[in-house]
């Protein structure tokens, strides 16, 4: 999604009203219930939230100058900065060490990288197709990418071939290096 993303892709920037801020926070909590206890810490009441509208209907939300989440359609997707701050709240999968290199260059994640010895998938029933997942790596503490499941985790286990996770955002992509000023 952020393969190519530059300043020119930004259409408009505007401040988010506090009433909309409230609904936004509620929506974030409803999507990721575990965020509830830290939401006021993540987005303090007096914080300055900005909405940045970009090409392809991508909308970035920045809190005090830091891009914390974005949406393309209805779903709010956290950025890695937010994930690093509070990693427990999201569905997570783990890839093996061999896959890190490819993930960091923006490739979709193949099923074998998710099923091998160093990787981890949740036990059944697992996650549905199209879930937004945080991608961790073997022996690493922090997440390195965010993707969308192209098949359910059970299917990945049984099928074990082809693309498993569609890449949305990874360390080092233009969104990661993006700064508001």
């Amino acid at each position: 999604m952020f393969r190519k993303f530059t300043r020119e892709d930004i259409h408009s920037r505007s401040k988010v009203k506090s009433s909309i801020q409230r609904t936004l926070k509620a929506k974030l909590v409803s999507q990721y219930p575990k965020l509830e206890e830290v939401i006021d810490e993540l987005i303090p009441k007096k914080s300055h939230i900005e909405l940045i509208k970009c090409e392809d209907k991508i909308q970035l939300y920045t809190v005090d100058g830091e891009v914390l989440f974005f949406q393309q359609f209805d779903e709010l997707i956290p950025t890695l900065r937010l994930v690093h701050k509070f990693p427990e709240a999201y569905p997570t999968v783990q890839v093996d060490r061999g896959a890190i290199k490819f993930v960091l260059s923006g490739a979709n994640i193949m099923c074998p990288g998710l099923t091998s010895a160093g990787a981890k998938l949740p036990d059944a029933p697992g996650y549905e197709k199209d879930t937004i997942v945080v991608i961790n790596a073997e022996n690493k503490e922090h997440a390195l990418a965010i993707g969308k499941l192209m098949m359910s985790t059970e299917e990945i286990k049984s099928h074990n071939k082809g693309h498993g996770v569609e890449m949305i955002h990874h360390l080092g992509d233009p969104l990661w290096t993006f700064t508001t000023d």
């Binding site: 830290v38 690093h84 701050k85 427990e88 890190i100 960091l104 690493k140 922090h142 360390l171 080092g172």
Partner: peptide, 23 residues
């Protein structure tokens, strides 16, 4: 569970454990 403060590498901006993949 409080928020985590993550250290980012000043050279490549990744969390330091990923520095080995940046070249």
């Amino acid at each position: 569970m409080p928020l985590q403060e993550v250290v980012y590498c000043g050279v490549c901006s990744y969390p330091p454990e990923y520095c080995e993949f940046t070249g």
